[in-house]
């Protein structure tokens, strides 16, 4: 029973890792680089929702606050691509890595300046509600997290599989030059993808905030989500989600049955094991360079 309880909580946690990991994958597909600010975008999204929704701040209804936050973060993601990322197009991959690390610090600074560094709690309609049954307690926020993740994943999948823009984005991610030549607006699609990953990050951030207090440093969760994305293979959306779930479940279980430091290390140990055995992740997409 105890194990099952741990697993359910872990799954909900894993969904959040998975969502942040989805953001990594989206951007990896678009810009072929890693957005190390993804965790901080999640943090910023959560804070915007909090700033709009909490009663002592702007005091908007919860649903409206979340939607505005998503739209705003979409705009921020879009803007980051337009203003910053586009300028380093064609530079080595690691330029983007360093650039986004720096961006992350900027986001953290902005959030810290506005909302301070003491943890704040997001007010939600379902705070503190629990379902009981068969000796297991499930919080409603866990259920909401899992449900929202499932819906969002399906929506993203449908977007890439069926819509014209989604298909164009897929084409651009496979071969930018070729996509550009056949008339796909590669640059606009990249902006769109960055916007999209900002929106996904916000959803992840709000879900995270329903489960506990937030402060500007929660963006460091991005590192774990990043391990999740790598476990799945950076280019694969289902892989990212799976990676997130694996880490989400392993962490509390390891924390229960192993020393604390080992539990903290567990996501990275799994990641290293995957990288050593399958250098491209579980759903590898990288192939050898052609000469």
């Amino acid at each position: 029973m105890e194990l099952l309880q741990l697993v359910i909580g872990g799954l909900a946690n894993g969904c959040i890792y998975g969502l942040v990991a989805l953001g990594f994958v989206l951007i990896y597909k678009a810009s072929e680089g890693v957005n190390f600010a993804q965790g901080d975008m999640m943090m910023l999204g959560a804070f915007i929702a909090l700033g709009l929704g909490n009663s002592e701040q702007a005091g908007l209804p919860f649903g409206l606050a979340v939607i505005i936050a998503i739209v705003l973060m979409f705009g921020i993601g879009w803007g980051v691509e337009r203003v910053v990322v586009r300028r380093i197009f064609g530079q080595p991959q690691f330029a983007l890595v360093i650039l986004t690390i720096a961006l992350g610090f900027v986001f953290r600074f902005v959030a810290g300046s506005i909302w301070g560094y003491t943890p704040l709690v997001l007010e939600t309609p379902f705070a503190g509600m629990n379902l009981r049954g068969g000796g297991i307690v499930i919080s409603v926020s866990d259920l909401v997290t899992i449900a929202v993740t499932v819906v969002l994943t399906l929506a993203l999948w449908a977007f890439f599989a069926f819509t014209k823009i989604g298909l164009a984005a897929q084409a651009a991610s496979q071969n930018q030059m070729a996509a550009y030549i056949v008339g796909v607006p590669v640059m606009r699609i990249n902006s769109l993808i960055w916007g999209l990953s900002g929106a996904v990050a916000t959803v992840a951030g709000v879900l995270y905030a329903t489960r506990g207090a937030i402060d500007p440093n929660i963006g460091l969760l991005g590192l774990k989500a990043f391990a999740a994305a790598v476990i799945g293979g950076l280019g694969s959306l289902p892989g990212a989600l799976l990676g997130g779930l694996i880490i989400g479940v392993v962490e509390p279980v390891a924390g229960r049955y192993a020393p604390g430091e080992l539990a903290k290390m567990s996501p990275y140990i799994i990641m290293l094991l995957v990288l050593v055995t399958r250098p491209g992740g579980l759903f590898a997409q990288i192939q050898m360079k052609k000469v």
């Binding site: 810009s31 072929e32 197009f89 064609g90 080595p92 991959q93 496979q174 071969n175 930018q176 030059m177 550009y180 280019g235 997409q285 990288i286 192939q287 050898m288 360079k289 052609k290």
Partner: peptide, 9 residues
């Protein structure tokens, strides 16, 4: 320069 891809299909 255009994106130098490391993914080759």
């Amino acid at each position: 320069s255009y994106l130098k891809t490391e993914r080759m299909k």
